[in-house]
């Protein structure tokens, strides 16, 4: 059916013009390279960023203000209140103090693994795909092998193999990084294979750019959103896996993390004794951190997938157009 009556819906083109006009009036410059890479402020980004920032601040500054988490007192299993904001454990240790140090430990693990896994995946994924030929075959075979090795059992075997006194924070982080980079490397390889055949890469080679510069300046910036989202994912993966390992008693021996807190709560029959203040806070922090990081990841998604961005940009334009029409 053709509808010949003019629609009252204001047109998007008008809104475009209105936007351009305001930009001209304010003398704004078009978004430059790096700024366009940043995700725009969506509700999910704001919420995710707020949650993560709060937890990171707690992990950074919390340990400075709380009591000594190792002090053993006679007042075991006190509910929240009194001198202990989040109650005490079976041996009378302050839960809030433990929580602060454990959050810091988990974040440290997450950050170290995130950086290591991202570096490994970028090295094997991008370099192999760019060089092609034998290097690509070798690198991609290696990452495929790493991919099919089941992660958690390997982590358990390696953690079990390393003597407990040597099983520090870094050992666990390296083990998690080694088991966690392969999937990202494959994604990066696929993306690089597509990018390296683009005309602008050929054009920069014709211009005389050296290989390392082609990778670092022409290809890598176009991979940044993918790498950023993989970094965030690696952090989530690391924190959750470490919690799992520590809960099984295979965590780092010299540091406390949210996982070790849960391990001790489980060993102290917190659930059976209905001492919810012992196991709920660490569990909640893990869940909130995963949730916040995922929300950030969704916003990064918008950069990788312009379709998502266009949906929102269109909605914004329509709002402006309606406002202009109402005036």
């Amino acid at each position: 059916m053709t509808n010949l009556t003019p629609t009252t819906e204001p047109s998007v083109a008008d809104a475009d013009e209105a936007l351009a006009a305001t930009a001209r009036e304010e003398g704004r410059k078009p978004r430059a390279g790096w700024r366009a890479m940043l995700p725009s402020m969506t509700p999910s980004l704001v919420i995710g960023f707020g949650i993560v920032a709060a937890i990171v601040l707690f992990g950074l500054l919390g340990p400075l203000f709380v009591q000594d988490p190792t002090t053993v007192r006679n007042s075991g299993l006190q509910p929240p209140g009194g001198g202990h904001l989040l109650g005490t454990t079976q041996t009378g240790q302050d839960v809030l103090a433990q929580l602060a140090f454990a959050t810091r430990g988990s974040l440290e693990i997450g950050l170290i693994v995130g950086v290591l896994a991202t570096l490994l995946s970028a090295f094997f994924g991008v370099l192999g795909a760019y060089l092609g030929g034998f290097a690509d075959e070798a690198f991609s075979l290696f990452s495929n092998v790493m991919l099919v090795i089941p992660g958690l059992p390997l982590v358990i075997v390696i953690s079990g193999f390393v003597p407990q006194e040597q099983r520090g924070l870094w050992t666990i982080a390296v083990v998690l990084a080694i088991t966690g980079w392969a999937a990202s490397a494959r994604v990066l390889r696929a993306q690089t294979l597509s990018l390296r055949n683009r005309d602008y890469v050929a054009a920069s080679r014709v211009a005389g750019e050296r290989s390392w510069r082609v990778i670092a300046v022409e290809i890598l910036p176009n991979l940044l959103p993918v790498i950023a989202s993989q970094f965030v994912f690696a952090v989530i993966f690391a924190i959750l896996s470490e919690a799992g390992l520590a809960f099984l008693g295979l965590g780092a021996s010299n540091s406390s993390t949210l996982g070790t807190m849960l391990f001790y709560a489980q060993n102290g029959f917190a659930l059976q004794l209905k001492a919810w203040w012992w196991f709920v806070p660490p569990g909640l922090i893990i869940a909130l951190l995963g949730c916040g990081l995922s929300l950030i990841n969704f916003s990064i998604d918008e950069i990788i997938n312009p379709k998502l961005r266009n949906v929102r940009a269109h909605a914004k334009r329509m709002r402006i157009a309606r406002k202009a029409a109402a005036r």
């Binding site: 005309d199 050929a202 211009a207």
Partner: peptide, 28 residues
């Protein structure tokens, strides 16, 4: 490469979307 240069077929693919126009001309 200083003497022989090339113009590609597809202008939508031959410029890096990440970089400014200045970058493209300044690099050579």
């Amino acid at each position: 490469r200083r003497h022989v240069q090339m113009v590609f077929q597809d202008p939508f693919a031959s410029l890096n979307p990440f970089h400014s126009i200045e970058h493209h001309v300044a690099r050579p």
